[in-house]
Measured scan of single mutants.
Amino acid sequence: TDVTFHVNGRNLHLKGADEELLRRIEELIRRGADIEELEKAVKEWEK
């Protein structure tokens, strides 16, 4: 799945995201995470 999140005026584009990653990103956004936290979560998922 390709999806782009718009967070605090910045874009986080995910290519090939699975349901697990999407749920994790949505949860972080609900908690008020900043873009750096979201990018870190994506990097951890990519490993």
Rank of each mutant, 00 (worst) to 15 (best):
L14S: 00
V3K: 13
I29A: 03
I35E: 01
G32R: 03
L28E: 04
K43D: 12
E37H: 08
L22R: 04
V42H: 03
A17V: 11
H13S: 06
G16E: 05
E20L: 14
V7C: 12
R31N: 13
E39M: 09
E36Q: 06
G16H: 07
L12I: 11
H13P: 02
G16I: 06
R24S: 09
G9V: 02
T4N: 14
K47P: 12
I25H: 00
A33P: 02
A33D: 04
K40A: 12
G32I: 02
K15L: 06
V7T: 03
I29Y: 05
A41F: 14
E44K: 08
V42T: 03
N8A: 04
G16Y: 06
E37P: 02
D18P: 14
H13W: 03
W45F: 09
A17S: 04
E39Q: 09
R31C: 10
T4Y: 07
H6M: 06
N11Y: 15
E36R: 05
A33I: 05
L21T: 08
A33F: 12
R10G: 14
K40R: 12
L21S: 02
K47T: 12
A41Y: 15
H6Q: 11
R10Q: 15
H13D: 04
L22N: 01
G16S: 09
R23E: 07
L12P: 00
A17Y: 06
W45E: 03
W45N: 05
D34M: 07
L28S: 05
T4H: 15
I29R: 01
K40Q: 13
E19S: 10
L14I: 15
A17G: 03
A17I: 10
E39G: 05
G32N: 05
E27N: 09
L38H: 00
L38N: 00
G16N: 14
K15Q: 08
G9C: 04
R30H: 11
R23C: 06
E39W: 08
A33H: 09
A33K: 11
V42D: 00
R24K: 10
K15S: 09
L38D: 00
K47N: 11
E36K: 05
T1S: 12
V3H: 15
W45Y: 14
D18R: 04
R31Q: 14
W45I: 04
T1M: 14
E19C: 14
L38P: 00
K15A: 04
T1W: 14
G16P: 01
N8S: 05
V3S: 02
T4I: 15
H13Q: 06
D2Q: 02
R23D: 06
E27P: 01
T4S: 14
E44Y: 08
F5P: 08
K15G: 03
I35T: 02
E26C: 13
V7R: 01
D34V: 08
E20R: 12
F5Y: 09
E37Q: 11
V3E: 08
E37M: 12
L38M: 07
E20Y: 11
T1R: 15
K43A: 14
R24V: 10
H6E: 15
D2H: 03
H13N: 05
N11Q: 14
E39Y: 09
A33N: 07
D18L: 02
L28F: 05
L12E: 00
R30A: 13
E36W: 06
A41K: 08
T1G: 10
D34N: 08
E19V: 10
L21G: 02
L22H: 03
K15D: 04
D34S: 07
K15E: 05
W45H: 12
E20V: 11
L14W: 00
H6P: 15
E27T: 09
L22I: 15
L21F: 07
L28K: 06
R31W: 12
R31T: 12
G32H: 04
V42G: 02
E44M: 09
H13V: 15
R24A: 13
D34P: 05
E27C: 10
H6F: 05
D18H: 09
L22K: 04
N8V: 01
K40P: 01
K15C: 07
T1D: 07
L12T: 00
K40T: 12
W45G: 05
D18K: 06
E44N: 11
L14M: 04
L22Q: 04
A41Q: 11
L22T: 05
A17H: 04
D34Q: 10
L12H: 00
E37N: 06
V7E: 07
A33V: 07
T1E: 10
E26D: 06
L28D: 03
E27R: 08
D18C: 07
V42P: 00
A17F: 04
H6S: 05
G32M: 04
D34K: 07
R31A: 12
F5G: 13
T1V: 15
E36T: 06
H6C: 15
A41S: 07
D18Q: 07
E44L: 11
E19D: 12
E37S: 09
V42R: 02
W45K: 04
G16D: 10
E26G: 09
T4C: 15
K43P: 02
W45R: 05
D18I: 02
I35N: 02
T4R: 05
W45C: 05
H13T: 14
K40E: 14
D2S: 03
I29C: 03
R31Y: 10
L28H: 05
I25A: 02
H6Y: 06
I35L: 08
D2V: 04
E26N: 08
E19P: 14
R30Q: 13
R10I: 13
N8H: 06
L14T: 01
G32S: 04
G9W: 01
R24P: 00
N8C: 10
R31V: 09
R23L: 09
D18T: 15
F5H: 15
E44I: 12
F5I: 15
R23S: 08
H6K: 05
N11S: 15
G9Q: 02
A41N: 08
E46F: 10
G32D: 04
K43I: 13
G16W: 05
R10E: 15
E36F: 06
R23F: 08
G16R: 07
K47Q: 13
D2C: 15
I35K: 01
V7I: 07
R10N: 13
L38V: 05
T1F: 15
E20T: 13
A33M: 10
R10H: 15
D18V: 06
L12A: 00
R10M: 14
N8P: 00
L14G: 00
D2R: 01
E26I: 14
T4L: 05
L22W: 02
E46M: 11
I35V: 06
G16T: 06
L38Y: 01
V7L: 03
K40N: 11
R10D: 12
I25M: 07
V42W: 03
I35D: 02
D34G: 09
E46A: 12
D34Y: 06
F5R: 14
L12K: 00
G32V: 03
E37V: 09
